[in-house]
Design a protein around this nucleic acid. Sequence first.
DNA 1: ATATGTGCAAAGGGTTTGCAGATAT
DNA 2: ATATCTGCAAACCCTTTGCACATAT
Lengths: 134, 134
Amino acid sequence: MNNLKKILQTNNLKATHQRLSILNTLEQQGHIDIDNLYNTIIKQNPTISKATLYRNINELIEKDIIVEVKIPHQKNRYEIKKDPHIHLVCKFCGDVLDNTVDLSMIINNIQHNTQFQIQSSFVIFEGICPSCKG
Amino acid sequence: MNNLKKILQTNNLKATHQRLSILNTLEQQGHIDIDNLYNTIIKQNPTISKATLYRNINELIEKDIIVEVKIPHQKNRYEIKKDPHIHLVCKFCGDVLDNTVDLSMIINNIQHNTQFQIQSSFVIFEGICPSCKG
DNA sequence: ATATGTGCAAAGGGTTTGCAGATAT
DNA sequence: ATATCTGCAAACCCTTTGCACATAT
C-alpha cells in the first residue's frame, strides 16, 4: 500500500485526494508555505479550497505528521516530520536547505551551566547559499 | 539624556511617550508578545491604541532597534536588539531565557561541508527551566 | 451504510491604513 | 511653526467555522 496512505490511516485519517496531495507536495518540495502549497495543489485539483488546506495542515500538525517551521522574516512553512535537522536559509533566494549537525556538546554545556533541561532544538542559520554566491 | 530617548532621536524618531513606553517595557521584560506589551503599557497610558503599537513595533524593527523572535508554538515576541544570544524556552511556564554559546565550531563545520556562507543564527532550545523542575 | 471530510460562503481575529487632531522639536 | 505622531474607525488581510453535500471505508 502507498506509504502516505498508510501514514494517514495509521492516524485514523481518511486517505482523501486532498490529504494525499498535501503530503505528496510536502514530500517533494519540503519547507513550503500555505500559499505555495495551495498554488501547487490547485494545478492538480482545481477545486480544492483553502479551508480544506488549513483544516488539514492543522490536523496533520496535531497528529505529529508534519511540522511548522518558523523562519525569521518569512511566512511559516511546513515540512513532513523527519529526523532532527537544522535549516540553512538563503537571504537572497529564500531557499531552505536541511543539514544535520551534532549539537550534543553545546547542549551538554548549556545544561551543565544553567540547569535548564533541553528536550528539543530549533536551529536556523541565515546566509548565502552556494547557488547565490557571486 | 535618557538612554532610550537618545536611541530614538539617533534614528530620527520623535521620543513620544508611546515609544518610550514600548522600549522601556521591552527593556524590563524582554521577549514579550504584542498582547502582553499592550496590557503592560495600557496600565501606564490608558489611551494608547493598538494601531500605535503595531506601527511602532514595525518601525523599530525596520530601524534595527528591536528584533522579532519566532518561537515554536508561541506568538511572536519582541526584544531590544543586543549581542547575539540563543533562547531557552520552557515548555511548562513558557518563559524565555537568554544564553550565550559559542557556535563557531558548528558554523565553520557547516560552511566547510556545504559551501553555504553563514551570516547570522537563530537558535532555540526547548525544555524545562530550573524553576519548573519537580 | 455511515462516519468523516470537503467546498462554499460567512464570520472571526489580528494587523494595517486614512484622516483629523495632538505633540515633540 | 511644522513635520511627525497618535487615536479612532474602517478596511484588509488570513484563518476558522457552520452547514449541506460528497467520499472513503
